[in-house]
Design a protein around this nucleic acid. Structure first.
Lengths: 206, 206
DNA sequence: GATGTTTCCTAGTGATCGATATGAAACGCG
DNA sequence: CGCGTTTCATATCGATCACTAGGAAACATC
C-alpha cells in the first residue's frame, strides 16, 4: 500500500538515482528553448538524462513537468512581484521590470527570450488549459503593476491624468515584445534601449 | 510525362474540385489560431474540407502550405510596407502600424493576435528554418520603419537626438506584445490605449 | 537475511504524426 | 469514341508521439 500521507522524510524504498532539481532545471531549459507542445518526451529524456518511467514517477505527466518548470522559472530571489513591491515608485517598478526583462531574456547560459512569453503562445486545443494558465500568470503580473501605478496616482506621486491601465499594459506589451526580439537575435544593449524608450512614455513624477 | 513548363492556363486533366484560394484562407485561419507545428494535418483537412492527397498536390507539403498562408496573411491592400511608405512622417508611420495592429489583432472574424508574431515563436529543431523565415520578415518590417525614422531625422522632421533604432525596435516590441495581450483576451480599446501610450515615447516633431 | 516499499531499466502500448501508393474518375483533344 | 493528363477518394505507410506493463534492483526496517 502506498503511504502518500507521509511526504517529508521518505524512509523506505529505493532512493532516487538522479538529482530531481537538476533534472527539472534541465527540463525547464528545454521547454524555454523549444516550447511546451513542441518539446517531445525524447527531447526531455535526452536533456534530463532520465528515462521516461522515471520522469513519470517523479513529475507525473508532461503537463505537470512543464508547470513545475514554469514554477522554477518564476522562482528565485528576484521576481516580478519583488520588483514591483520593493520599488520606491511605480515608475521605478516599471523601469525595473523592463530592465530585468532585458537582462533575463539575453542570458549567456539560458535560451533567449522569456519562457512565460514564448513557450505556450500557440498551441493545439488539447493544451488550451496550459495556455490559459500562463495567460493568468501574465495577467497577474500586469494586475500587480497596475495596482502599483494606481497607488502612486492616489498618493499624488503620479499625475491624476495618468492612465494606470494603459501604462501597465504598455509595459507588459513591451516586455513580451522584447522576448520575441531577443529570440530573433537582438542583443541586450538593444533591449536596454527599448526599455529606456518605453519609459519615455511615462508622465513626469510629481 | 508532366508538362510543368506550361503553368499559366492549364488545359488538360481533371479540374480542381475545390476553391484553392478559399482552402488556403481556411488553412491560414487555422495556422493563425493554433500555430505552425501545433496544427496537425487532420486539423487542416477538417478546416479546408480537402483530403490529404489533394493538399499535397495543390500546395506541396505542410511547410509550403504554411508559408503560402503567411504570404496570404501579409498580402492585402494595406500592408506594413504601404503604411510606412505612404505615411507623411515617421511618427505617422509608427502610429499607423500600432493602430493597424490593434485593429488587426482583434478582428471579429479572425483569431486574436498576429499570425506572424505567434505561429512560430517556439518550435522544435525541425522547424527552425520556418522560425527564422518569419524572423526575417519581422526584421524586414523593423528595418523599413527604422529607415523611415532615419530619413525623418535627416530631413530635420525629427530631433537629431532621436534614436531611430530604439524607436523602431520599441514600436516592434509593442506590436508583438500587443499580439500576446490580444491572445490573452485584451479588447481592441485596450490595445488602442497601449498604442497611444507607446507613441508618447516619441520626441516632439520639429 | 527476510520482507515491504520504491525506483530502476527494457521494451513495448495504442494513437497520431506528416506524407503516399493506388486505381478510379473527370476533364481537353482528336 | 479513345487517349493523355490531372485530380479524386480510399486506405494506408513508417516514424514518432505521450505514456506504461513487467520484473529486477536498491534501499529501510525487522
Amino acid at each position: 500500500m502506498k503511504q502518500k500521507d507521509i511526504e517529508p522524510g521518505r524512509r523506505t524504498g529505493r532512493p532516487l538515482s538522479f538529482d530531481r532539481d537538476l533534472a527539472l532545471r534541465r527540463a525547464m531549459l528545454v521547454f524555454w528553448r523549444h516550447g511546451y507542445e513542441t518539446t517531445s518526451l525524447s527531447d526531455l529524456t535526452a536533456a534530463m538524462g532520465v528515462t521516461p518511467p522515471s520522469i513519470y514517477t517523479a513529475f507525473g505527466d508532461k503537463k505537470h513537468l512543464f508547470l513545475e518548470a514554469v514554477g522554477l522559472y518564476l522562482s528565485g530571489p528576484v521576481t516580478s512581484e519583488t520588483i514591483i513591491t520593493e520599488a520606491e515608485s511605480a515608475r521605478d517598478a516599471a523601469a525595473g521590470l523592463l530592465r530585468a526583462a532585458a537582462i533575463g531574456f539575453t542570458g549567456a547560459d539560458t535560451p533567449s527570450g522569456c519562457l512565460l512569453a514564448s513557450s505556450a503562445i500557440s498551441c493545439s486545443a488539447a493544451a488550451s488549459d496550459v495556455q490559459s494558465e500562463l495567460a493568468d500568470i501574465r495577467k497577474g503580473i500586469e494586475t500587480q503593476l497596475r495596482h502599483r501605478i494606481s497607488a502612486d496616482i492616489r498618493a499624488a506621486k503620479l499625475a491624476r491624468s495618468a492612465d494606470a491601465e494603459a501604462l501597465a499594459a504598455h509595459v507588459m506589451a513591451v516586455i513580451q515584445g522584447m522576448s520575441t526580439l531577443a529570440r530573433d537575435g537582438a542583443p541586450r544593449k538593444k533591449l536596454m534601449r527599448i526599455a529606456s524608450t518605453a519609459m519615455a512614455a511615462w508622465p513626469a513624477s510629481t
